[in-house]
Write a protein that binds this DNA or RNA. Structure first.
Lengths: 216, 216
DNA sequence: GTCTATACAGTGATAGAC
DNA sequence: GTCTATCACTGTATAGAC
């Protein structure tokens, strides 16, 4: 099985292996063996193991983020001067990645979830470069859609939202699957999207005092 | 600096090093060097690198979970037959760990967040053994407090909740800090607890149809 | 029991031949 | 573009000192 280029075979092999066992859990010897390439091929084509990971992440996430930004642009154009309703905004944010990744056997979200928490500078650099633009774009829109929140509240709740999404998508959900012993929590992506949209929308709508103990 | 036992020095050194750079990111040699112990000390006292991590996690999390379960027991006893209000239940769940960990320089939550996503069997075993009991306990209570939700909805939203909490606690929040460039989202733990309680309470209260597209 | 030195197979990376 | 040889490093195991 060597119908494709060495680069493509390396990317495919690395994607499935990293997704299964994590970045640090896979050796480039395993990758090159599965891809039927030489040990040095990774460094030749991608510069390093981290470079290979960055390439495969961008291959998957790049188009997805382009799609999300295009949909947000369209929705904002249609709304004119009006800010988007929070649930519409969140639906745009969640739909593309969940539809794309929420399939049986798709393990890349697990890898992404782990990368979001990885402190090594090489990994941080990749994650920031891939997700920074889309995060900025949605935070700005969210700020317009939820003007009742202080900046600290907005960022905090955006963290809650990101945590909920990342967690829900990484099917491994190691604890969850161990906890629930195989009872899948939700297998229809459309249902998961809607649950997540509703859950977070309510959270963003809430208007709470933003500091200190004070009576209502 | 060798006032304490070798075991204690190893635990302290490993905790700070793992928290900074992750489980796989730190070598036994670095740990034993910082602890002024011999390379083989880790394997002698803890059996393996994973055994050392398990010991330090249990040292920190064990008492915290005991406290949470005691508080839940007390609240349920006080409520008699009545299920607890969702916000009270969540407040008990969040308060102890956030008060304990939400301090400047405290990086253990970052490690815990990463461990929750780590696929290696050795790590999964530790995480499950430490968090399974408390997860079961709270899921049961949550089921009583939110009887309007199907089991799939309950588990799904519990995942959202866990994701939000874990994400909010791991201050690194690599993306967040990069995204917001140092603007701390929320430094008062009590404020963070209350934001998280309110955010998730609204999410659990929601009553949505639990399958298929159907008009309201 | 506790600790030490050392050996072993595995890792990512690289220089240089082809 | 590919390959081999080699480097410094990793976690682990064990023999033996105290």
């Amino acid at each position: 099985m060597k119908p494709t280029s060495t680069q493509a075979r390396l990317l495919d092999a690395a994607e499935s292996l990293f997704s299964e066992r994590g970045f640090k859990g896979i050796s480039i010897r395993e990758i090159t063996e599965k891809a039927e390439a030489n040990l040095a091929a990774v460094n030749y084509h991608f510069g390093s193991k981290a470079g290979l990971m960055k390439a495969l992440i961008e291959r998957q996430i790049g188009p997805l983020n382009q799609l999300r930004i295009a949909e947000l642009d369209a929705a904002e154009a249609a709304a004119g001067d009006q800010p988007l309703a929070i649930d519409n905004l969140l639906r745009i944010f969640f739909t593309a990645p969940i539809r794309h990744f929420h399939k049986p056997g798709q393990k890349l979200p697990n890898l992404l979830a782990r990368l979001h928490q990885d402190p090594s500078p090489e990994v941080v650099e990749v994650v920031v470069s891939v997700f920074q633009p889309i995060a900025d774009r949605f935070l700005t829109a969210l700020h317009r859609s939820a003007p009742h929140l202080s900046e600290a509240q907005l960022i905090t709740r955006a963290m809650f939202m990101k945590g909920a999404m990342v967690h829900a998508m990484s099917d491994g959900l190691v604890l969850a699957s161990a906890m629930t012993e195989g009872r899948v929590s939700m297998d229809d992506p459309e249902e998961l999207i809607e649950e997540l949209v509703q859950f977070c929308t309510e959270g963003f709508r809430l208007h709470t005092p933003n500091s200190g103990p004070q009576a209502e």
